[in-house]
Design a binder for these strands. Structure first.
Lengths: 224, 224
DNA sequence: GCAAAAGTGTTCCAGATACACCCATGT
DNA sequence: ACATGGGTGTATCTGGAACACTTTTGC
């Protein structure tokens, strides 16, 4: 099989791993699976697995994510490719890492296939991770933070419809500081990325809020 | 050989390819090699090649670059990993793409090993490229353009010592517009990334220019 | 009527932009 | 002496930051 393509040298294995983020309980959280088999049995790890020979890289990331956690249809972007010689005890394994963002209303992952358990963890309370997944998670977090202020990536954490206060709360969690309400609304509306849906949302003993939605839900734009 | 690591499914081959940029003749240019063998014999392509099983990804990029073009010791950064099913007629090949920047005084590439020829091409006059290398080059160029205004990456095009006018000329070529001399100098010096070397450079019938150098030549900082 | 979040404009400041002249050299 | 690129400071503009009160609802 190895020499089927005319290049007969030993080949590394290729995997994809995905750092899945969401906002939950006022915290940025990361989705981990507990490994069912060796190596690193019972350790927590990023969802991911081996690339099928006839499978696109991104398709592999999506498939493993769906198989291991039940999550699909979320924003997914390639992060970096990790290939240190000893990152996997099974031998030479190259991992093409992705990161994904899940809206806060679709976060009921279910353990499946080769994962013993699936759980969200706050980023400042991660358990020890398998392989170099700590490094991957850290890079993903940095990339996310960087993209916050020159793209509309934060919108990918929002459900289909949301209020401006909900959006502001997401931003405040992500950058970890309070924002001025008027400046925030001015800036967001100036982006022309969201539109009022026409309804009001009443959630308690106070004035109801306008409901908004993304004009292009799939799209992440570069701003600035 | 395939099952030496316990994972016995067919594996893709892994390569690295490098988009090498320099500034030459008032133009941003890309380094290409002419392929000596099949597939795409005689076509122009990015330097690159197969990953050795005991070789780090970045080491592979550096090695192929040195072998095929004689270039070494330049700024190198991972760009993106390409893995479309049919990007290589030899079969399933994943390419981890890098990009590199070469100072304008070290740009005498020499064809070696499996390259028939090596040449610089202006980016708006590229020949047809092998594989998906056109796509890789285009992405590299976009990444370079993006990094220009939030990092000090442009300094990597400069030789060890340079004048502010030379630096400004590089910026003007990269962003393709004229800059104001006073504002440019103010901004660059405010970065505190370069220091006067103490000498003057006399190049013609006019006042000699102060010579500068990078404080941290290897380093690319994120600014803003 | 009171508590609680939604909604709304203006002033101020800092960083970017526009702009013109003298300096040192080679011929 | 003149042509050529090197070197310098100030006024203006603009986008971001700071800031407080009224509105609508549920209880």
């Amino acid at each position: 099989m190895c020499s089927q393509h005319g290049y007969q040298y030993p080949r590394p294995a290729v995997t994809t791993d995905v750092a899945v983020f969401t906002i939950r309980g006022q915290r940025l959280q990361l989705l981990l699976i507990q490994r069912a088999g060796e190596p690193y049995q019972n350790r927590w790890a990023l969802p991911g697995g081996f690339l099928d020979i006839n499978e696109d890289l991104e398709a592999c990331a999506k498939r493993e994510l769906a198989e291991e956690t039940g999550i699909s249809g979320v924003y997914l972007e390639q992060l970096y490719t990790f290939g240190s010689l000893n990152r996997d005890p099974r031998g030479r394994v190259i991992s093409v890492a992705y990161y994904a963002l899940v809206p806060s209303d679709r976060l009921q992952p279910k353990a499946a296939s080769d994962a013993a358990d699936v759980q969200w963890f706050a980023l400042d309370q991660l358990p020890p991770l398998a392989f170099d997944h700590q490094q991957i998670a850290a890079l993903a977090q940095r990339r996310l933070a960087a993209k916050l202020d020159y793209s509309t990536i934060a919108f990918q954490f929002m459900p289909k419809t949301f209020t401006l206060s909900e959006l502001q709360a997401v931003y405040e969690i992500l950058i970890n500081e309070r924002l001025d309400k008027r400046n925030f609304r001015k800036k967001i509306l100036a982006l022309k990325e969201i539109e009022a849906v026409g309804e009001l949302r009443r959630t308690g003993n106070h004035r109801p809020a306008r409901v908004y939605q993304l004009k292009n839900p799939e799209r992440v734009d570069i701003i600035k």
